[in-house]
């Protein structure tokens, strides 16, 4: 798919994310908007998958370790045709398949249930290891947050993946630098972050996480890298696309009201 098409989809899905959160009355806009461009690139450009056959054994796997940003994933899955777009309006409502955090039992096109931070990379590692063991050539992608790199399990997983030479595993770190109660550097600084991953024997790349061409190049390089996993440090902006949300920790876990939502949507639609 052309970059202009990816841009158009991302714009459309940013609107869907805002609409879903307004309807739900709660949820996490900031991190959903910071990771949507990488999700769009994965699902509409890079990944091998079949929306009409979600359990296709040879599909590439996607794990959203930062489960609170699942509105972005729901928007992508609906757009790709895994379920009807109308269902997005049921987010967080009673009896909905679209739980506040991913639940693969209710919505089987999800690979995993996540939402307790720090666990997703281990799940992705397991899938990659199973793929290698079965001599399958599928790839596994995992989006992790910056805040969750404060959890020890992330580093347990990061230590294990190179041991098993999992070059079929690619982690994208959504480095928007803001977590629930403030700036990551004030809560628990992660720097030097890229050095840490490098020291754990990952192939590392650093890109602008909103530049589609850069995301594509990085994903291609990850696929070509043999013998070890790749970590793509994606420099992103929390709340990207909505000026009053950008860089604001207040919009980590608060849904816009109708008026705010309308303003946000107008702003997104006005962007080129």
């Amino acid at each position: 798919m052309e970059i202009s098409d990816l841009k158009a989809i991302a714009k459309e899905l940013r609107v869907d994310i805002i609409r879903m959160l307004v309807e739900a009355g709660s949820g996490h806009p900031g991190g959903s908007l910071s990771c949507i461009d990488m999700l769009v690139t994965l699902f509409f450009h890079k990944m091998r998958h079949r929306p009409h056959e979600p359990t296709w054994p040879d599909r590439d796997r996607f794990v959203l370790s930062k489960g609170h940003c699942v509105p972005a994933l729901y928007a992508v899955l609906a757009k790709a045709g895994y379920f009807a777009r109308e269902e997005l309006a049921t987010l967080r409502k009673l009896n909905s398949r679209l739980q506040g955090h991913p639940d693969r039992h209710r919505l089987p096109c999800l690979e995993t249930s996540t939402g307790s931070l720090g666990q997703g990379l281990s799940l992705a590692l397991g899938m990659a290891l199973a793929g290698k063991t079965a001599q399958k050539d599928y790839r596994v992608y995992c989006v992790i947050s910056d805040g969750e790199c404060q959890a020890g399990q992330v580093w347990e997983a990061s230590m294990a993946a190179p041991k098993f030479r999992l070059d079929n595993l690619c982690a994208l770190l959504d480095y928007n630098k803001i977590q629930l109660s403030g700036a990551v550097k004030n809560i628990m600084d992660l720097e030097p972050l890229l050095d840490k991953w490098r020291a754990f024997n990952w192939h590392t790349l650093e890109i602008d996480g909103h530049d589609f061409a850069a995301i594509i190049r990085a994903l291609d390089e990850a696929e070509k890298t043999k013998g070890r996993p790749t970590l793509i440090l994606c420099q992103t902006i929390k709340g990207k696309g909505v000026s009053f949300m950008e860089g604001k920790w207040e919009w980590h876990g608060k849904a816009p009201n109708r008026e705010e939502g309308e303003r946000a949507i107008q702003e997104i639609l006005a962007q080129s």
């Binding site: 054994p57 796997r61 794990v63 693969r104 690979e111 995993t112 666990q119 997703g120 990379l121 281990s122 799940l123 992705a124 590692l125 397991g126 899938m127 990659a128 290891l129 199973a130 793929g131 063991t133 079965a134 020890g152 399990q153 347990e156 997983a157 230590m159 294990a160 098993f164």
Partner: peptide, 28 residues
């Protein structure tokens, strides 16, 4: 040996890795 994986003293990651392998069709 090809079906045995020592995850080291990191049981949390072992739990997650096992879950990932199960979701990919293995019986861990």
């Amino acid at each position: 040996p090809g079906r045995f994986f020592d995850l080291g003293i990191a049981e949390g990651n072992m739990v997650g890795t096992g879950a990932g392998m199960a979701l990919a069709g293995k019986i861990p």
